[in-house]
């Protein structure tokens, strides 16, 4: 069971969280103006990263907030968790 550091509540057991898919997939401001390919990419294209991955979690059974996390999918190590709206931190990656 993962130990996930909620940006609001601190480290908490995975049982309290729900996974929310890849992070930083912003809904277009004006979907009507978005072409079919771009809209399709927004809906369906995901990185499925091996290694560092920015993903969303919701502290469903805690503060109920969505937040973002940087996790290495090969080790399950979290490098960072941060509030929605904040940019993806650059950690452990070649800059």
């Amino acid at each position: 069971m993962l130990l996930i550091a909620c940006p609001y509540c601190g480290p908490r057991p995975e049982l309290e969280f729900s996974h929310g898919g890849e992070a930083h997939i912003a809904r277009p401001e004006a979907p009507a103006d978005v072409g079919a390919d771009d809209w399709g990419a927004y809906l369906y294209l995901r990185a499925n990263a091996r290694g560092l991955h920015a993903e969303r979690w919701r502290h469903t059974h805690g503060c109920a907030r969505f937040f973002n996390a940087l996790r290495d999918t090969t080790t399950d190590k979290f490098l960072a968790t941060y509030e929605c709206g904040q940019p993806r931190p650059h950690l452990g990656e070649p800059s």
């Binding site: 509540c9 908490r12 049982l15 309290e16 059974h61 805690g62 503060c63 109920a64």
Partner: peptide, 10 residues
């Protein structure tokens, strides 16, 4: 105080 889980209940 906090929301959490007890077995299968919140």
């Amino acid at each position: 105080c906090t929301r959490t889980v007890l077995a299968k209940a919140e």
